[in-house]
Design a protein around this nucleic acid. Structure first.
Lengths: 329, 329
DNA sequence: TTGTACGCGTTATCAC
DNA sequence: GTGATAACGCGTACAA
């Protein structure tokens, strides 16, 4: 390993001078600057971030905590965060919590131990105390928090839109799928849809699901049609579940969207590649990740923050699991 | 921040002793051990990994470099790596290269600067020199290398199997989709399929695609049927492309698998949720990630390695985009 | 404009 | 058994 001392020796100056040219701090003669740079080149010196981090008590590391990167919604988020952080010169320390408080704590601890200068968390954190005594900025992503800045999509509005759209398109016996209780965004969209549905005059059922896992989704789908065979509209808790419902409906020989309309939530990339392509409520995942990163960077730079909570807009993506709206009525 | 010095003061011993009880190195009286532990508890002390890393010249950090986490194949890999590394007490420094040599180099550098003790790379690395002067162990994942240990699926065999199966099931005019030239695994599976097809007596075309992006996939699919409208069997370069082909075929009113058989590659999670569910060649992504992590850990521990190159088995997943095999013929 | 010397928090080596 | 203390590589007062 080549250290700043080696560079100093090679260029015949002191380590202080080398440090000065590298960090562009303080005056340094052009000639010596060149000498130093030459030595740096020759030795292929690159500063030890660990030593730097120890001295300055701050690194160029950001902690990113996700529930599960295997859920297709999150890679987009992660990518948004990464691209922005990379632009700003930060690197990511990354972990999946599986919505498990212990894992969450564990990662948080190691983040701190590694001197990260900020954390972006998309985990559930019922026990809010987790984050209380962190002395570094935290931004929550895909979830709300009163105590911390956050970036999230307007789930409640998304739920309302979904319900509106399916009603407008004529479904009369709707099944509303309620996502896992401990996942806040799932509850928001459920509440929004429930609000609209309960003020309407159509029949509807609520069915509760307890996970977003691929493996479970098909189970719920079967159960749905077994329990409510005459359902003609499904508001799914996310696109995974919607996909399973679609799949099962086709298997049962239903025509989509004639016999049954389906609206998902998230607009994960593969939703547009389904057959028929899935109508859904889009969350701008990549942009959310980016926003969260930008917000965190601003906070770390102690810039003025206009808004602590950034609510991202949600839009209805009208594909082929919903009918064309009847403009005559 | 509470340091080892604070603990020492509080428990009335020296920092050396505190270090000894924490690291369980050297003798220390049970009574003092208890005193120290009490102080640790009370102060909620947890050691600074950065200082530790500086002194020992090794951290508990692993660098993980992926092409693009947004491609559904990679989250599985990443999760396999993470779960195993987490078990072993390592954390992940994570980056996407986008198959871009500059980004790759950049991440590699920052990995080194942060004292990572090992690297798992799933990137393309045409310029092999990149990794040459790294003084830490590297394991390649989802790609082969003569110079470094690696974990990868048997792509060539996968290609052969796919071709065999589609032939066995009676396709006569096959289109073989060739993946991006710079992605090694894509070429392997292509070669395998080509080998079998060229020894058979059926007609086949080769069509080259240049990316695995969702957005491009639909374009290739349209082009495929425009150019070869009478194709009755498609060997896709991966499941994304296969999905797009399936989608387009259904749009064109083809019956699957009667008019057209399709076999994908990878078995990404959503392939089973398509309609009809996609027949494909499965790569055990999660297990590959795990294997790579285990291999790297062994190398870091200087354990004896039986094999530097771990080739994972590939299997045909017989779902509904292929016909049932005719056992009479 | 440049160099000396100290400290960041930890571990390991040596005395005691 | 325990305590000083030197080192890890870097950045910054302060002195020159």
């Amino acid at each position: 390993m080549v250290t700043i001392r080696d560079v100093a020796k090679k260029s015949g100056v002191s380590v202080a001078t080398v440090s000065r040219v590298l960090n562009e701090t303080g005056y340094v003669h052009e000639d010596t600057r060149k000498k130093v740079m030459a030595a740096v080149e020759e030795l292929k010196y690159s500063p030890n971030e660990v030593a730097r981090s120890l001295f300055k008590k701050k690194s160029k590391l950001i902690g990113l905590l996700l529930p599960d990167i295997t859920n297709p919604f999150f890679p987009q988020l992660a990518r948004g965060v990464e691209d922005e952080m990379q632009r700003e010169g930060y690197r990511l320390l990354f972990g999946n919590s599986d919505e498990n408080a212990e894992k969450e704590m564990d990662y948080l601890n190691t983040f701190i131990q590694n001197n990260v200068v900020g954390i972006i968390s998309a985990t559930n954190n019922k026990t809010k105390t987790n984050y209380k005594d962190l002395s570094i900025p935290v931004v929550f992503l895909d979830r709300t928090s009163n105590d911390y800045p956050s970036v999230y999509a307007d789930g409640k509005e998304g739920g309302r839109i979904a319900a509106d759209e399916i009603l407008k398109r004529g479904s009369k016996r709707i099944t509303l799928l309620k996502g896992p209780a401990h996942i806040q965004p799932a509850q928001d969209r459920f509440q929004g849809a429930l609000e609209v549905l309960s003020q309407s005059s159509v029949d509807f059922h609520v069915m509760t699901t307890t996970s977003f896992a691929f493996e479970d989704a098909e189970k719920w789908a079967k159960e749905l049609f077994a329990t409510y065979p005459d359902t003609d509209g499904v508001l799914a808790s996310n696109d995974i579940v919607a996909t399973a419902v679609l799949h099962e409906a086709l298997r049962l020989g239903k025509s989509i969207p004639e016999d049954l309309q389906i609206i998902g939530f998230d607009d994960i990339p593969q939703s547009s590649l389904l057959f028929p392509p899935l109508s859904t409520i889009r969350q701008p995942a990549y942009e959310m990740g980016k926003e969260a990163a930008q917000l965190l960077v601003k906070i770390m730079n102690k810039e003025k923050i206009e808004q602590q909570h950034i609510q991202m807009p949600v839009t209805f993506i009208d594909r082929n699991t919903t009918r064309k709206v009847d403009t005559n009525g």
